[in-house]
Design a protein around this nucleic acid. Structure first.
Length: 760
DNA sequence: GAGTTTGAAACT
DNA sequence: CAGTTTCAAACTC
């Protein structure tokens, strides 16, 4: 089970928070004051949200302004699991709550000093309850009641991220203990944070606290592991998954005995233009919340409360923009007993869903970049920069620009197993990407990017019904906080074929600025196969693809590879698109929800939510949405002359015809395949035989000379029979027998290299 | 490929 | 909410 802090969840749309993989076996949070205060926003969304589950408030922010010097990489340590743990200077943080708790602090910053691998350093820190989290960075204190881990992450300097791990060891029935009674003892939500490498423009260090709710199963025999799982492409195993400047991740997935641990590799690339390549996510994923530090000073941390209906969406990463001056939040109050080794799975694991929110400054910051010679579609998202380093961010991304060490989250599966040693034994843990054997590769699911845009505050309340991945773009000139909701499919597309470069605020715009490049699949053309069904390109001409007439728009996709004209359904027209979305939602709050409800027990239960309104088609043509969806009309339909019902003979006839046609097609296909195979095989075998001579075909031996000799032999038999005055029947038999012998000699000669010799 | 039909979406 | 218009897909030729 994943535990999401109510606080963080409250900031997120229910749909975003929703994950199919989440099992609601966890006990609702009760004890933590912060958690209690973080009541989840009421949402009527039927989809269970992670928000409902988490007992511990969680705050994740990804930007660190602290100078990199604070992070000191002490060394590396091999963990029992084989992962390499890099020790770094400990940063003590003080939980706001008085209760003892184990905490994991993710401190971003000082990445410059990190190894090139940009690993996230988990520093287990024993912190005293009263310690000040904001001040005591770099120090380690031991708290009797709980354990604190400092995770030094990637990114900009010095903004520590604190992962609080409520200890439930003593309290098996702890209120916050999530799913404690459940067999699966470990449930964590992990937020991975990476910050921009640029430190100069950043302001004071910011402490970010990530609270991790842990199930309390202290008695478990096996060591507990924290698995930081990133939304990683399960396909590409070889590629490095690096998260530069912006990163994150909240861990939604939990490691269970049955489920192989999944690893998230968060690596930071030190370079001016960092790109994050988000690998495609296949399996249903859990929600990943990524908090991105914004470069806007003094701006309060902005929480995203977007009730997006993304239940059906795949893996999504939620990026929250946080300001450098935003105060760190420490929420968890649980006191738990740290297990020797705990695995935290951060997002992206098989059944996890990630939702991604990237902060966007202005629409102008979103750039679609077509790289000549590259089959990938590049999208650059740049937040408004107020700093002096804007020039870099605004520059178009080209192949040459990509050389600037962009941070790329590859589609490659990268597993990071971060075993955490008890405070007594281990103080610092640095997760190391595990690509070696024995590590389980995580499966990626769809990712959807939601970009914060301040320009559309009014839309946010209605985001529940937004199309998956809808981009909410900030109004022009509206600050750099906004939400851009990328179309779900677009994100899906991005995952496979396109790159999205996300550059955060001015701090990122510098040569060391953060650029997140997400690898996204093309619209409807995903190579993943079944995961993404290819969709027809639209042909819209008048709707600008901003009306529900457009299937792309209706499906929450960006138009790509379409035949539409005057298309606004792209990143270049985020504002218009956002307005259109809002308009659609105003007209119909459920406009972007699937029309065909998914039956609980199979397709038979599927039905059109609204029903069709056919008049002439008899509901037996694709004009009818019911028929098109291969479902029968129901009582909700208002169709006239409907023939799309169970006992309809017309329907049966059509079905039979369709089945027959399908069978024919399949047979033809199979026949073609077989024939092709046979031909190919024949050519393969005959070609060398003909050329080599050793295996020549029989006809090659029946030369003119052979035929003449054979005929002479036959004539001789005929003459012989005539001389002996044999009856005609006997003569014919003699001739045929001679012919048989000739053939035998010819055949026997076939295996010989020299020319066959036939003698009567 | 052009033209027609159709029904959902948008509009009034 | 009902009627009309618009629109793009489905369909036909």
């Amino acid at each position: 089970m994943d535990v999401v802090s109510p606080e963080l969840n409250s900031l997120l749309p229910d749909e975003i928070m929703d994950t199919e993989a989440i099992i609601m076996d966890d006990d609702p949070p009760a004890e933590s004051p912060a958690a209690s205060g973080q009541s989840q926003p009421s949402d009527d969304s039927p989809v269970p949200m992670e928000m409902d589950v988490p007992a511990v408030p969680e705050i994740v922010s990804l930007c660190s302004d602290a100078p990199p010097t604070q992070l000191t990489q002490a060394g590396t340590t091999s963990t029992p699991t084989g992962s390499t743990l890099c020790t770094s200077t400990l940063t003590s943080t003080t939980p706001k709550t008085t209760s003892s708790l184990s905490r994991v602090s993710l401190t971003s910053g000082g990445l410059q000093k990190l190894s090139a691998h940009h690993q996230i350093i988990l520093n287990k820190v024993a912190s005293s309850p009263g310690a000040d989290t904001t001040r005591s960075q770099g120090t380690t204190t031991t708290t009797p009641g709980g354990q604190q881990f400092m995770v030094t992450a990637i990114g900009k300097s010095g903004q520590p991220i604190v992962l609080q791990l409520p200890h439930t060891g003593s309290k098996s029935t702890s209120v916050q203990g999530l799913g404690e009674a459940k067999a699966n003892p470990q449930h964590f939500k992990v937020v991975t944070v990476s910050s921009a490498s640029q430190v100069s423009t950043l302001q004071a260090q910011q402490l970010k606290t990530v609270q991790i709710a842990k199930k309390t199963q202290v008695s478990s025999a096996g060591p507990i592991k924290f698995v930081f799982t990133k939304a990683v492409n399960n396909k590409g195993l070889t590629a490095q998954t690096s998260v530069s400047n912006v990163i994150t991740g909240r861990v939604l997935s939990t490691s269970s005995p049955v489920t192989p641990p999944r690893t998230i590799t968060l690596s930071e690339t030190l370079g001016s233009s960092s790109k994050i390549a988000i690998s495609p996510l296949k399996s249903p994923s859990k929600l990943t919340v990524v908090s991105v530090a914004s470069q806007v000073p003094n701006s309060p941390q902005k929480s995203v409360s977007l009730p997006l209906n993304m239940a059906h969406l795949g893996h999504q990463i939620l990026l929250q923009q946080s300001t450098a001056t935003s105060p760190a939040k420490v929420v968890s109050t649980h006191s738990t007993t740290m297990k020797p080794v705990q695995t935290v799975t951060v997002g992206g694991v098989g059944a996890t869903q990630f939702k991604t929110i990237f902060p966007l400054s202005t629409p102008s910051n979103v750039q679609q970049i077509q790289v000549p010679g590259s089959r990938f579609h590049y999208v650059r998202l740049v937040t408004a920069t107020t700093g002096s380093s804007t020039g870099h961010a605004g520059s178009p991304i080209t192949n040459s620009s990509m050389t600037a060490k962009p941070m790329v989250v590859n589609t490659t599966q990268v597993r990071m197993s971060v075993p955490i040693v008890p405070a007594q034994t281990m103080k610092q843990v640095v997760p190391k990407p595990l690509t070696s054997s024995g590590q389980v590769l995580t499966t990626q699911t769809q990712q959807r990017l939601i970009m914060p845009a301040t320009s559309l505050p009014q839309i946010q309340p209605n985001l529940t019904n937004l199309p998956p991945g809808t981009v909410l773009a900030p109004a022009p000139g509206s600050g750099n906080m906004g939400y851009a909701v990328l179309p779900a499919q677009y994100v899906t597309q991005l995952q496979q074929s396109a790159y999205v470069t996300l550059a955060s605020s001015s701090g990122f715009s510098t040569p060391t600025g953060i650029q997140t490049q997400a690898r996204l699949p093309l619209n409807g053309l995903s190579t993943s196969g079944a995961a993404f069904r290819p969709r027809k390109p639209c042909n819209c001409t008048k709707s600008q693809c901003l009306k529900l007439y457009c299937d792309c728009f209706a499906n929450g996709e960006f138009c790509q590879n379409c035949n539409c004209t005057n298309c606004f359904n792209n990143l270049e027209h985020e504002t218009d698109r956002a307005k259109a979305i809002k308009a659609c939602l105003d007209r119909n709050p459920e406009a972007f929800k699937p029309k065909i409800g998914k039956g609980k027990e199979g397709e038979s239960d599927r039905r059109h939510s609204k029903g069709c309104n056919c008049k002439r088609s008899g509901c037996l043509k694709n004009y009818c949405e019911c028929y098109e969806a291969k479902i029968m009309c129901s009582s909700t339909c208002k169709c006239v002359g409907c023939k799309n019902f169970e006992e309809s003979p017309e329907r049966k006839t059509l079905m039979h015809l369709a089945d027959a046609a399908e069978v024919r097609v399949q047979q033809q296909t199979a026949a073609k395949t077989k024939l092709s195979s046979q031909i190919s095989d024949l050519l393969t075998r005959t070609t060398p035989a003909i050329t080599s001579g050793g295996g020549r075909m029989p006809y090659t031996f029946v030369t003119k000379e052979v035929a003449e000799v054979t005929c002479e032999c036959l004539l001789e038999q005929a003459e012989q029979a005539e001389l002996n005055q044999q009856p005609q029947a006997t003569a014919e038999r003699m001739i045929l027998e001679e012919f048989g012998r000739c053939l035998m000699r010819i055949i026997s000669s076939a295996g010989k290299t020299d020319c066959p010799s036939i003698n009567c």
